[in-house]
């Protein structure tokens, strides 16, 4: 298992380099000159040329990419924002916790709602509870999260005045964004939990558990849930990307100074170092979460666990032979 994790971490480096390269290529082909963007439309050509030289924008593409990676790896430096002239690393460090908080809380809310509703729906299949859960799942699934965010803000901030509509000055400001993300994300999890629980409920080993005299609630928790969770965990891992993408949208609707909002502004202003830095950090986060998903998965499915072990072993043997 340890070897598997190390192997995955090494692969992660390759993935992150690939992401950075793609971002570099995309920005290379994006129309608009960052030097011109910084100095404004009234600056003359010489000033722009001087700025380009200062930012070393005229170097060949691969040289710039190499320099960026070198600085990142050996100096832990993501460059300096064109606009604020502050180190990108520092700017990201102040915004990152907010995005992480929204993302993780959104995930927690969606998993909590999805799990509880999914279990109830499956155990009481075709009951009115099941039907209500399904109707809500379809409704929230059909709503794009930016629209849900706007509606929530309209109801709870504007009409009811229970919660602040925008900004970030404490946890209270996170409730609406987290609710918007969580409700939207919970529908997919709900449907996965429900369908995999329904599969497991029909398994023979559930009948074995009943024949042992086990109580229904323990059958659900001990025998059904653990086996039903495997596909759910994969799905949660995959939906992390969606949640992070969603946080970009939600942050800009609620004017929350998080990483997503920061990146969006940077894209509009051609602030290349900020775009590269934010994408890198988000990609890093997704990689880490995917790795965590796979580790959790192996704990749930013993068959996989032994596969990881035998995989590493057989490779080792292959090298020796």
């Amino acid at each position: 298992m340890k070897k598997y994790i190390i192997k995955r971490l090494l692969w992660m480096i390759v993935v992150l380099l690939g992401v950075l390269f793609i971002v570099f290529v995309l920005l290379e082909f994006t129309p608009g000159d960052p030097a011109r963007q910084i100095l404004g439309v009234y600056a003359d050509e010489e000033e722009v040329a001087a700025k380009r030289l200062e930012l070393r924008l005229d170097d060949p593409f691969l040289v710039r990419f190499g320099r960026y990676v070198y600085n990142l790896v050996f100096r832990f430096d993501l460059g300096i924002s064109y606009r604020t002239k502050l180190p990108v690393m520092q700017e990201i460090a102040t915004r990152f916790p907010i995005t992480i908080a929204i993302g993780v809380l959104g995930l927690v809310v969606s998993v909590a709602i999805g799990l509880v509703a999914g279990i109830i729906s499956a155990v009481k299949q075709y009951s009115w509870l099941d039907k209500i859960c399904n109707v809500f799942a379809v409704i929230f699934h059909a709503m794009p999260n930016f629209w849900l965010a706007l509606e929530l803000s309209l109801i709870f901030a504007l009409y009811l005045k229970w919660l602040p509509p925008t900004g970030y000055k404490g946890l209270k400001y996170l409730i609406l964004p987290v609710a918007a993300l969580g409700l939207n994300g919970s529908t997919a999890i709900f449907r996965q939990v429900r369908s995999s629980m329904l599969d497991v409920i029909r398994e023979d080993y559930i009948r074995t558990a009943r024949a042992k005299g086990q109580s229904e609630i323990k059958i659900i928790l001990k025998h059904e849930l653990r086996n039903a969770l495997m596909p759910v965990v994969t799905m949660i891992g995959n939906s992390l990307g969606a949640i992070i993408a969603g946080s970009v949208v939600v942050e800009s609707i609620f004017s929350i100074p998080g990483l997503g909002n920061y990146m969006l502004q940077a894209i509009n202003r051609r602030d290349y170092p900020v775009i590269q830095g934010s994408v890198f950090v988000l990609a890093f986060m997704i990689c880490i979460f995917n790795l965590l998903t796979d580790i959790v998965y192996s704990f749930l499915d013993p068959q996989l666990q032994s596969q990881y072990q035998s995989n590493v072993k057989s490779k080792k043997r292959g090298v020796k032979a």
């Binding site: 023979d204 074995t208 042992k212 005299g213 086996n227 013993p302 068959q303």
Partner: peptide
């Protein structure tokens, strides 16, 4: 529930799927 598994037990047909895999 106090009878099942205690005073009356049952062995099922297909051993392949009658044990909890996890």
């Amino acid at each position: 529930r106090t009878l099942r598994g205690n005073k009356i037990s049952m062995i099922f047909q297909d051993p392949m799927s009658a044990l909890n895999p996890s």
